[in-house]
């Protein structure tokens, strides 16, 4: 890293920056030119209009979503093959237990020799299935950038400071009501090379397991009122307005701890069928 900081833009032609690692280089472009935000925003609007015109509710993002350039070569073109077998192994799934987490894992501000920089927050909510039943005793994993918008990952070359007191990974098991709870710092926004002046809104990555492998979910939590939400093709890939809103946590003043932290609530509903067995059968 050079001593002199220059504003980093997503334009690889911008001077004064070191070569990027491939993980942050622009996706292979088939159009030749790096698109502008205006062009990406127009594509986002067109996709949303097409979705509304089709009149069919779709909760998950399409895997083929051109505004997110990285999806171009990484989605299947053939339709998925539906499996209706009641004996399918995917209707069961992995389990985790006390041995797979430590007590400190749910507090991302611990485990270092000092306090991380940033706005301390708690994030909590329930993990439910589509029938509203709590998902009990299951693993929730999170990872995130630090308060400056930098991941503790070698491929992240965003010239924002690393924080020696923050790694940004956590895990916990849901309790009997399906609740999880993490203490962390609010992550920063960061630039990425999808298009010129592309910025990811602040987000926390979540990984969740249900009672069946079919319910597996990896997703991202966003923060209410973030001005970047409308510009981001990854969030906007969820073209259904209501579904997209379900990715945004709610600020909950009741969860804020006086003179300590701000609270956010985010409930998660896992999709997909599960075997009809009950907890007692397991």
């Amino acid at each position: 890293m050079t001593a002199k900081r220059s504003p980093r833009t997503a334009d690889p032609a911008a001077g004064g920056v070191e070569p990027r690692h491939p993980a942050r280089q622009p996706e292979r472009q088939h159009t030749g030119m790096t698109p502008t935000q205006q062009e990406i925003s127009a594509e986002i609007a067109a996709r949303r209009a097409a979705y509304l015109g089709a009149g069919e509710v779709r909760h998950h993002p399409p895997r083929d979503y051109p505004p997110y350039r990285g999806s171009a070569l990484r989605h299947p073109r053939e339709p998925l093959v539906a499996v209706h077998d009641p004996e399918a192994a995917e209707l069961s799934g992995p389990v985790f237990g006390a041995t797979d987490v430590t007590e400190l894992d749910a507090d991302l501000t611990l485990g270092h020799t000092g306090e991380p920089i940033g706005e301390r927050i708690t994030v909590t909510g329930r993990v439910l299935d589509r029938d509203g039943r709590p998902v009990r005793g299951q693993l929730v994993e999170i990872w995130q950038a630090n308060a400056a918008g930098r991941y503790a990952h070698q491929h992240d070359r965003h010239p924002a400071p690393l924080d020696p007191h923050f790694t940004g990974t956590g895990r916990c098991l849901t309790d009997d009501q399906g609740r999880y709870r993490f203490t962390t710092v609010r992550p920063g926004a960061y630039p990425w090379p999808n298009h010129t002046n592309a910025w990811r809104p602040a987000h926390i990555h979540f990984s969740l397991f249900g009672t069946a492998f079919t319910q597996r979910l990896v997703t991202q939590l966003y923060f209410p009122g973030d001005p970047l939400l409308g510009y981001d093709p990854i969030l906007q890939s969820v073209t259904d307005d209501a579904a997209r809103a379900r990715l945004v946590a709610a600020y909950d003043h009741e969860l804020s701890v006086p003179a300590w932290s701000l609270g956010y609530r985010w409930d998660i509903v896992l999709d997909g069928p599960a075997a009809t067995w009950t907890e007692e059968d397991r």
Partner: peptide, 19 residues
């Protein structure tokens, strides 16, 4: 089914130190 599902999002490029 009474609840609407939380949409999926990409795992992204930086899961490597977490998962």
């Amino acid at each position: 089914m009474s609840e609407l599902p939380t949409p999926a999002q990409t795992v992204g490029p930086f899961y490597g130190y977490a998962l």
